[in-house]
Simulated scan of single mutants.
Amino acid sequence: MSCSDVSPFRFGIIADPQYAAIPPHAPMDRYYANSLAKVAEAIEVFNGWELSFVMTLGDIIDRSFRSFDDILPVYGKLRHEAFFLLGNHDFSVSAGHLSEVAARLGMPSPYYSFTRHGWRFIVLDGNEVSTFAPPEGHPHRALAAQMLAKLEEKGARNAHRWNAALSDVQFAWLGDEIAEAAAAGEKVIVMNHYPVHPPSEHGMWDSERIVALLASKANVVAYLNGHDHVGNYAKAGSCHFVNFKGVVDTESENAFAIVELHPERIEIRGFGREESRTLVY
């Protein structure tokens, strides 16, 4: 399909570039430095399409605040609007830089929403209650330690330090945004770094309440995430949960997608290792 055809509303997705100027981790098949070329390749493809925006689903870097200086200029070649959300590795920076990450990515705030063509996109900060993102001494750090300890006690599969949770304030905001969208006649797509469904070792610590909320709202169509680099898919209620594959994995194969929103379905066009899917709603 060429750009001159009458187009449905489309946007691009990139997940987990995890760029850093460091050697590869061969056992995990992660090639951190190669992500510059892979993101540039994705952007070249995106620039050939009419897209409303491109969202990167977190883990833009693997470590070091100065890694942003290398990868963000690559996004400067994108002719579409670039949106970001925060992943756990984006906070693998020195303590002094923790509070600067969202601003460095040009984000209006760590979580936010925006509307396009009768759709509301709700962008979560899945790292808000974690052992790594809040500043030292912040109450969210102590709360994260408590939540993690409880999950470890239960033998929960997602009891890992590289997962996290929403604050009650952010969770209430999510509910309010969905309700406001319903009142405005808008369909909703939620975006976050972490998976919440199906349950997995990569899932958010408070996945259950998030899934219960999203699955119970008729106007919530999809939840899009990264973090688990192998990808995944499931459905709860009428909400489709799509986990996109990580760019950083493999030496040369890429993974990104173009999402097309039709009146009755979502078409995901996968490139490289990313799968194509048709999701009816």
Rank of each mutant, 00 (worst) to 15 (best):
Ala37Phe: 04
Phe244Trp: 06
Pro195Val: 00
Glu274Gly: 01
Ala144Pro: 04
Leu72Thr: 01
Glu81Gly: 12
Leu214Asp: 09
Ala103Met: 06
Ile189Asp: 03
His160Thr: 14
Asn158Asp: 01
Gly231Pro: 06
Asp69Lys: 02
His240Met: 03
Gly96Glu: 15
Phe9Asn: 06
Glu251Gly: 14
Ser2Glu: 13
Met1Thr: 15
Ser130Asp: 08
Glu100Lys: 11
Val129Phe: 09
Phe171Ile: 09
Lys235Pro: 03
Phe46Glu: 02
Arg265Thr: 06
Pro8Trp: 09
Lys150Glu: 15
Ala234Val: 07
Ala144Met: 03
His138Pro: 10
Ala164His: 03
Tyr233Leu: 13
Ser35Ala: 06
Asn254Gly: 00
Phe9Val: 15
Val259Met: 11
Val221Ala: 14
Ala133Leu: 09
Glu201Thr: 11
Ile61Cys: 03
Ser216Gln: 06
Ala15Met: 07
Asp59Gly: 04
Gly203Leu: 05
Pro195Ile: 09
Ser2Asn: 11
Asn127Gly: 13
Glu253Trp: 11
Arg116Glu: 11
Leu105Lys: 00
Ser167Cys: 08
Phe53Asp: 03
Lys187Thr: 09
Phe132Lys: 09
Val39His: 01
Arg209Asn: 04
Asp125Gly: 06
Ala181Leu: 05
Asp69Glu: 03
Glu251Asp: 14
Ala183Ser: 01
Cys3Trp: 15
Ala82Phe: 12
Arg79Thr: 15
